[in-house]
Every structure is written in C-alpha cells, then in structure tokens.
Simulated assay, not measured.
Amino acid sequence: MLVVHATFPIDPDNRGEALDLIESLAEDSRQEDGVIDYRVATDIDDSNLFRFFEQYEDEAAFEAHAETDHFEEFERALPDLLAGEPEVTRFDVEDASPVEL
C-alpha cells in the first residue's frame, strides 16, 4: 500500500475557489480504481491549511491518479491558490491494522 500525506497552505483570498476544487478532487479521486481512501481536512490551528490523506493499493494506482483530468485541473490551478510551499510525504506500507482505543 502507498500512503500520501500532503499539506497545502491556501491563500485566504482564494479559499472559496480552492475549497470547490478540493471537494471535487476528493470526490472524483475516491471513485478511482486502486484508491483505498482519499480524505481532505483543514488543520485545527489554521483553517487555510488543507491536509490530504491518500491511500492507494499500489504504485500503479498512484500513478494513474496523477494522470486523471481532475488531478491535472487541481495541479494547474494550485500555483494561483497557494500562500506558501506545499509539503508532500509518501509512505510505502507493507502492513496496516486498526488500533484499539
């Protein structure tokens, strides 16, 4: 499994446009083959910082995601929406299991 955690600091003046794009991106991404989960949340300390949590079955699914129209649309718009540098971290995971609380 491949897991991606990405953060995007969005310019407050562009938050509405960014939110529309992000909602559409997340919804469309969850429909892709090989996507286990695709979630976006705002940071509790900064509502203009969007955190992406993405899980893919494998590298092929991740690469296919990067080639979709909805991802490319988001990628094209992103430079005009940002208020800083995005951070993206990739995790290659061999095993995952629920944690009892």
Rank of each mutant, 00 (worst) to 15 (best):
A26G: 03
D69W: 12
E23N: 14
A61P: 02
P12F: 02
S47E: 14
A60N: 05
H5R: 08
G34K: 00
R15W: 15
D28H: 15
H5L: 13
F62A: 06
D33W: 03
Q31V: 04
H70C: 02
P12Q: 07
A61S: 06
D37K: 12
D28V: 10
F8T: 00
I44V: 08
E67W: 01
G16D: 11
N14H: 09
D11A: 11
L19A: 10
Y56W: 05
F71Y: 05
A18Y: 09
L21R: 00
E59S: 08
R39K: 10
N14E: 15
T7S: 10
N48S: 06
L25V: 13
A41Y: 09
E63T: 12
S24G: 10
Y38D: 03
E59H: 08
D69N: 08
T7D: 06
E27L: 11
R15P: 04
I44Q: 07
D69K: 14
D43P: 01
A66I: 05
T68G: 12
E59K: 12
H5V: 15
D13Y: 13
I36C: 00
S24Y: 15
Q55M: 13
G34C: 00
S29G: 12
F8I: 02
Y56R: 06
L21F: 03
I22T: 02
F52D: 06
N48C: 06
T42P: 03
T42W: 11
I22N: 05
A26I: 05
L19T: 15
S47R: 10
E63C: 13
L49E: 04
F53A: 09
D37H: 09
E27R: 15
F50Y: 03
E23V: 11
G16M: 08
D11E: 06
Y38F: 15
Q55I: 05
E67Y: 04
I22V: 10
A6W: 10
S24W: 10
L21Y: 08
I36H: 02
E63R: 12
E23G: 10
E17Q: 09
G16P: 14
L25Q: 13
I22G: 09
V3R: 07
R51P: 13
E17S: 04
D28W: 04
D69C: 06
E59D: 13
A6S: 12
E59R: 14
D11R: 08
F8V: 00
Q31G: 11
Q31A: 06
Q31D: 02
D46P: 03
A61F: 07
Q31M: 07
D28P: 13
A60C: 06
A60L: 07
V40R: 15
E27V: 07
A66L: 10
T7N: 11
Q55E: 11
H5F: 14
V4D: 04
D11G: 06
L21E: 01
D33Q: 14
L21K: 02
A66P: 00
S47D: 12
F8W: 09
Y56Q: 02
A64N: 08
L49D: 12
A41N: 11
E67H: 13
S24A: 13
L49K: 14
D20R: 11
A64L: 02
V3M: 12
E32Q: 01
